[in-house]
């Protein structure tokens, strides 16, 4: 990723040596703003993170840290936090899946069925962003409160029992402080990131292609799976990435809606950086998370067959 910073977009063919010097440099000048941006906001922070992941773990915030190529941090961090890592990927994955199903229906309805309500519905999708992320998440504590009607209904229709069996809640018939609440919170918070790209790509689907599918003996259902859905794949890929990546690193939902058994990797990294002051482990854990996500994304994008995105 970083290599693009150093490659000038101009030909440096040897035969052009006679060209005026100014013109040869134009390309470099043009990429300068981009390169500076990349350096400031990606390369330096990234190096800093990698450096701290290799700090001598014997250092501390006050006595100072020294980079000693201490690769062992990675082994220690992984062994100690593999539980949280796995949980983060699982929760983020489930939340992404739920977002995809809910978001697809929503985006489809907006793109094809909303008519003149289209713009209003889009505004409503973004509306939650007008309040703070923290407040929105906290309000779910009220909605899902143990004595609240949501839990009452969930118990009445035996949803809580079902969730218990699949392990998304505990045996206490509650929803808060369970994996379910954390996944629900993630789903809620990241849904707009799924809906918007899905809408953008569904909206681009030529209605005439769907007609053509119908003309060629595809029932509306078959037409959807053979034409509409494949054509919306760029949106599906973009949406799942925009949802999964931040969800995997999120710590607010687990902190506010979860319990001690639902902590995600974001909580660990946050605690290591701020409370414990253990920069080495925190750095190593961050890099591990990043590598896992990049690998997962690359594998996913390759399978989804939309290489153009990367």
């Amino acid at each position: 990723m970083t290599s693009t910073a150093g490659v000038p977009p101009v030909s440096t063919d040897d035969t052009t040596a006679a060209k005026p010097r100014g013109r040869k440099l134009t390309g470099y000048w043009l990429i300068l703003p981009g390169a500076v941006w990349l350096l400031l906001f990606f390369v330096i922070p990234f190096y800093s993170l990698v450096a701290s992941s290799l700090f001598d773990p014997k250092g501390s915030v006050l006595t100072g840290y020294e980079m000693t190529w201490h690769v062992g941090n990675y082994v220690d961090a992984f062994n100690q936090y593999k539980g949280q890592l796995g949980r983060s990927l699982l929760y983020a994955g489930l939340a992404t899946l739920t977002c995809l199903v809910v978001g697809y229906v929503l985006a489809y309805a907006i793109a094809f069925k909303a008519g003149r309500w289209k713009n209003l519905m889009l505004v409503l999708v973004i509306a939650p962003f007008f309040t703070s992320f923290l407040l929105r998440t906290l309000s779910w504590k009220l909605i899902l409160a143990d004595d609240g009607w949501v839990v009452g209904v969930a118990q009445a229709i035996h949803l809580t029992d079902v969730l218990n069996i699949i392990g998304l809640t505990t045996t206490d018939d509650r929803l808060l402080a369970t994996p379910f609440a954390v996944i629900a919170g993630l789903t809620y918070n990241f849904l707009p990131f799924m809906v918007l790209p899905l809408y953008a790509s569904l909206e681009k689907v030529d209605i005439r292609l769907i007609e053509a599918a119908g003309d060629l003996y595809a029932s509306p259902m078959r037409g959807f799976f053979k034409v509409t859905f494949p054509l919306s794949l760029p949106g599906v890929v973009a949406g799942t990435l925009l949802t999964f990546i931040p969800a995997a690193g999120d710590y607010v939902n687990a902190q506010l809606l979860g319990s001690t058994n639902t902590k995600m990797i974001g909580n660990s990294i946050q605690s290591l950086f701020t409370t414990q002051g253990d920069y080495a482990t925190a750095g190593a854990l961050s890099v591990i998370l990043m590598v896992i996500i990049v690998a997962a994304v690359m594998a996913y994008v390759r399978t989804a067959g939309t290489e153009e995105l990367v």
Binding site: G6, Y47, S48, A51, L54, T63, G64, E66, M67
Partner: peptide, 20 residues
């Protein structure tokens, strides 16, 4: 050169000093 520079930057560029 880039690799060497990276290594040097990593080794010396981001150490945190004693805060006493």
């Amino acid at each position: 050169a880039a690799l060497g520079l990276s290594a040097v930057a990593l080794r010396y560029g981001f150490n945190t000093p004693d805060q006493k």
